[in-house]
Design a protein around this nucleic acid. Structure first.
Lengths: 120, 120
DNA sequence: CCCTTCTTCAACCATTTGGTTGACAAGGCC
DNA sequence: GGCCTTGTCAACCAAATGGTTGAAGAAGGG
C-alpha cells in the first residue's frame, strides 16, 4: 500500500468520507449511525470506514455488537504540514518575483532567482 | 467530474504529483523538465499534469514548443481551510471531553448521541 | 437455545486510474 | 522545405475503487 500521506489524501478525496469525518468531529458514531444519511448500503459505508481506518484517520473499538468509530484528528496535521510547507514556499517565491516575472521570461540575462540563491 | 475539493485531494494523493507540486513551488518547469527525475514515460507525466490542471493546481501556457507549467498555490488554501476547520472542531471537542470520556462509556444513561438526536 | 441487531466478509461488476506504445501536432533550426 | 524537439492524443491494459447482493460472525435479549 502507499505511504500514509497518500492514503490520507486519497481517503479525503471522497465527499462521503469527508462528510463522515466532518460528522465525527462532533461525536463518535456507530457504523449504522454513520451510514444513515447516505443512500448507499451499509457495506459500502463499512468499506469507506476501512479506507479511513487504513489512513489512520479513525479507529474502531468494540462495544457489544456496535463498533463505535472515533476520529484521530492528529493525522490531519500531516496534511496541513505538507500543504503549508509548500504553500509558503510558493508564496515566498511569488513575493520575490512580483513584477520580475517579465525578466524570467527574458533570456538575455538568465538569473532566475534574484533573492533565493540557495534554491536546490 | 467531482467537486474541486475532491479533485485537489485526489490530485495530491499521488506521490509523483506531490513531488511535482513541491518542485513547482521553486520555479516553473516545462513538461520534459518535470518528467526528468521520474522513471515513467513523458506521456504519463503529461497525464499527471492534466490531473493537476483539472484540480486547478497548475496552469499551462505556451512558449514556442514548450509548455511551461505554473503552480496555482491559492488552491491549496481550499484544502487547508477544510482541514483546519474540522481539526479545530475535533480539538475543541477533545478539550471539552477531556476527563469526561469515562462518563461517555458509562452505560447507566444510554444517550449515545448527545447532540444529534435526529439520527434515523 | 434461538432470534434479532450490528457489522463485516466474499464474490461480483462497472468505472477510474496510472501506466504503456504508436501516431501526430506545433514550432524553431539548418 | 525538411527535420528535430517538445508535448499531446488515442488505444490499450492491469489494478484499484466504489458500489452491489448474499452469507456469516459477534454479542445481547427472550
Amino acid at each position: 500500500m502507499a505511504d500514509q500521506l497518500s492514503r490520507v489524501f486519497a481517503a479525503l478525496a471522497d465527499p462521503t468520507r469527508r462528510d463522515m469525518v466532518a460528522r465525527l468531529t462532533e461525536a463518535d458514531h456507530t457504523v449504522g449511525d454513520l451510514a444513515a444519511p447516505y443512500d448507499v448500503s451499509l457495506q459500502a459505508v463499512s468499506k469507506h470506514l476501512k479506507v479511513l481506518e487504513d489512513a489512520g484517520l479513525v479507529t474502531r473499538t468494540r462495544e457489544a455488537q456496535r463498533r463505535p468509530v472515533h476520529l484521530e484528528a492528529e493525522v490531519l496535521d500531516l496534511m496541513t504540514k505538507w500543504i503549508e510547507r509548500y504553500r509558503r514556499r510558493a508564496e515566498e517565491r511569488f513575493a520575490a518575483l512580483d513584477g520580475v516575472l517579465a525578466q524570467m521570461q527574458d533570456d538575455e540575462q538568465p538569473h532566475p532567482n534574484p533573492q533565493e540563491g540557495t534554491a536546490s
